[in-house]
Design a protein around this nucleic acid. Structure first.
Length: 330
DNA sequence: GACCCGTGGAT
DNA sequence: TATCCAAGGGT
């Protein structure tokens, strides 16, 4: 769209009031941008900041991360939540090394093909890291457009085709401007047009906002389903993975229970269901003798030396074989 | 489209 | 205390 009334005030507001975040600074790399976007999926900026700094310092490019076992990525992820993101970032690093010369691809389709990168993240990286023109539609933008343009208190429960179309129509023509519009709209949603109590007093588009003109009506839609956490499978998975992160050697299921004396873990059904889930997701490696550890640490599982026959029969390490499926349960 | 996946801070 | 919410993605 050549011009929309929201563009100028939002861009001006961003120029004056944007946060100084490390992944927005001039020196940041596309890799740094990608890491930030993945970490920020469902996780607040305040918690991402220290993790991002530690990650990018330790792994300044995809090759550095790909060179280490997935377990290290999961450990460094610490308690950011949704540790599958760490696993996928590690996988994505491998893909970038194998197919993109060790660099974050510029092409939107290539970004989208990376594990853990969906529509939002692909557009965000293409836009923020490479200055391309894409609609970048996250929860902040959806809320901003719902209010300012559509006149509704909140966006639909999940992204609709109408929202995608609207966001696409609002993207400025010039790529550079489009990229600034994308961050600016997100920032406005994050700092001013917030979910709970929007700070309309400080909003640069207050007078243009359709929701305000309608008298800021309450949300009508159904309440989001309450989440609940304690006692759920997610909770148990979190406990188990935390124990495995701090462990220096493989642990048996029984040892895990001892390490995390939580009532829910005394339920063997729930314990095994959670453990099964972690293994199925690739977050945990099952080892012989009913033991478990973070993935990728075990000695050579698939790589067999091509030709060399050792003069001395290699001492078979007890732990070096991969577990057969289904044999690990008690 | 429904459901699942962590964790912690604010209200 | 309970609920809400946080730059989503995958199945």
């Amino acid at each position: 769209m050549p011009h929309h009334p929201l563009h100028e005030p939002v861009l001006a507001w961003y120029a004056a009031d944007a946060r100084d975040l490390p992944w927005r600074r001039p020196g940041r790399t596309p890799w740094g941008v990608l890491v930030s976007e993945v970490m920020l999926q469902q996780t607040p900026v305040s918690r991402v900041l220290p993790a991002w700094t530690a990650w990018t310092a330790r792994w300044p490019d995809p090759a550095a991360l790909a060179a280490e076992p997935a377990a290290e990525a999961i450990r460094m992820w610490d308690r950011l939540g949704y540790p599958r993101r760490a696993l996928r970032l590690h996988e994505a690093a491998g893909v970038m090394v194998d197919r993109h010369g060790g660099e974050v691809p510029r092409d939107h389709a290539d970004l989208l093909a990376l594990p853990g990168v969906g529509a939002y993240t692909a557009a965000a990286v293409a836009s923020f890291a490479f200055g391309q023109r894409h609609p970048v539609v996250d929860t902040n933008v959806r809320r901003l457009l719902a209010r300012a343009v559509t006149g509704e208190a909140q966006a639909a429960p999940s992204l609709t085709a109408a929202e995608t179309r609207l966001a696409g129509e609002l993207v400025p023509d010039a790529p550079g401007t489009a990229a600034r519009w994308a961050v600016a709209a997100m920032e406005l949603g994050a700092l001013v047009c917030t979910a709970r109590s929007p700070r309309c007093g400080g909003c640069p588009v207050r007078d243009l906002c359709r929701w305000r003109r309608l008298g800021a009506p309450e949300a009508t839609g159904p309440r989001r389903r309450a989440q609940g956490y304690a006692g759920t499978d997610r909770y148990v998975r979190g406990l188990l993975l935390a124990a495995l992160r701090s462990a220096t050697a493989p642990l048996t299921a029984a040892a895990l229970v001892d390490l995390v004396p939580d009532a829910v873990l005394r339920d063997p059904l729930q314990r095994d269901r959670a453990l099964d889930g972690l293994v199925a997701d690739g977050l945990v490696d099952p080892l012989p003798r009913n033991r478990f550890q973070l993935p990728g640490l075990s000695a050579p599982t698939v790589s067999v030396p091509e030709n060399p026959v050792p003069k001395v029969p290699a001492p078979t390490p007890v732990d070096s074989t991969v577990a057969g499926e289904s044999s690990w349960k008690r």
